[in-house]
Computed example of a mutant assay.
Amino acid sequence: MKNKRALLESHGLKCLAIGNHLVGQAVCDLIDERHQSIVPAHVWGDGSPEGVRQRAAQEMKDTARAAAAFGVKTVTGFTGSSVWHATYAFPPTSQAFWDKGFADFGQRWTPILDTFEAHGVQFALEVHPTEIAFDIASAQRAIEAVKGHRRFGFNFDPSHLGYQGVDYVKFLRTFTDRVFNVHMKDVWWGRGDGTVGVFGGHTSFGDPRRFWDFRSLGRGMVDFESIIVALNDIGYAGPLSVEWEDSRMDRVHGATESAAFCKRLDFPAAAGAFDAVFDKDKQARVGG
């Protein structure tokens, strides 16, 4: 741990959060052969679905311990979901069916969050299609499922909300005390040739037929100016973490321009009202 810290510091860098999305995905998912490619061999084991879920849960607890040992207070990640496959609600899906999914999430993640609590670390779910929370309504339900556990919050990423039609600025103003980390990632939507809808048409990213696709920061449709204003309004003081994905662009070029975009966009919150300068009493105190 000390050597890794020293390596970062030697390059003038800091680690403000660590992520464990892939293992977290396996905690609640209906496990299939795809998961073998994203989890470590010791988590996959013999591939029995419940065994994978249990080992993934243990790995997430160990992630909290590792974060604490490394001096990091936030872990970002996924939770998986046992009911995502029923999002479209056909065959007809009752609220009782979805309730079981949220109950499963609460049962599996509360002990994990208790470990986070024991080590003073936050877990920030990246609200995202395929997760237990993928919009504002499902995020509220997820909080309820873990009984408002104080270590459960969100890794805000507007790129997963905008193309769904979710008000991503409202998300920030709804969960003011649960935004633990921020991904700066752009997306555009309403594009393509009309043959592929919001569900993606089983096409690959970068396919020109797609209705939506991820873009390099500043080249999509996300209103980052409003996001920065909202983040300042709610008192967020954490990192702005660039998550870069753009199938059409060179990665080094994209990372370079995205870092510059963030630095140009960000600004410190005001110390007071702009018109306070006209307060004569304050002027007199300053002058005296």
Rank of each mutant, 00 (worst) to 15 (best):
R215V: 12
V43K: 01
R34D: 10
S204D: 15
D114R: 02
D46G: 04
G288P: 12
T174Y: 02
F105K: 06
Q122P: 03
G77K: 07
W109P: 03
S247G: 08
A271L: 13
Q25M: 14
G148S: 02
A26P: 00
S48V: 11
D223E: 08
V242R: 06
F278G: 03
W84L: 09
L217Q: 03
R178T: 02
A41R: 09
R53Q: 09
D104W: 04
P91M: 02
F211R: 03
F154H: 02
H183F: 09
D281K: 13
A26M: 01
V286I: 12
T93G: 09
V179W: 01
P239K: 06
V72Q: 02
A255C: 10
T74A: 01
M249Q: 15
K73N: 01
E59H: 12
A86H: 03
V75F: 01
D62V: 03
Q283M: 11
A255Y: 08
D177W: 07
G165Q: 11
T176R: 15
C262P: 09
T174A: 05
R150A: 04
A133F: 09
K280Q: 13
D135M: 09
T110S: 11
S204I: 08
E117L: 00
S258Y: 10
P208A: 05
Q140E: 13
A271Q: 11
L161N: 04
T63M: 08
E59P: 11
G101K: 06
V39T: 10
E33R: 12
S159D: 15
V169D: 10
F278V: 05
D266P: 04
T76K: 07
E126I: 09
T195H: 04
D266M: 05
S94Y: 04
E59F: 05
F224V: 11
A276W: 06
E131Y: 05
P208V: 08
S226N: 14
D281R: 15
I227Q: 08
G165P: 01
T76V: 13
A230K: 06
Q122R: 13
Q95F: 11
R285W: 14
A270I: 05
F199A: 11
F102S: 00
A269R: 10
V196W: 00
G238K: 08
A96H: 10
P208T: 07
V146R: 02
T93K: 14
A276N: 11
T110L: 02
V198D: 07
P239I: 10
T115I: 04
E245H: 14
D29G: 10
I132N: 01
H183Q: 12
A271T: 14
F152A: 01
K61F: 03
Q25C: 04
H85S: 14
G200V: 10
R264M: 15
G192E: 03
G288H: 11
L30M: 05
V83Q: 06
P111Y: 02
K73P: 03
C262G: 02
H183Y: 12
K100N: 14
G206A: 13
H253N: 11
I234W: 02
M184K: 00
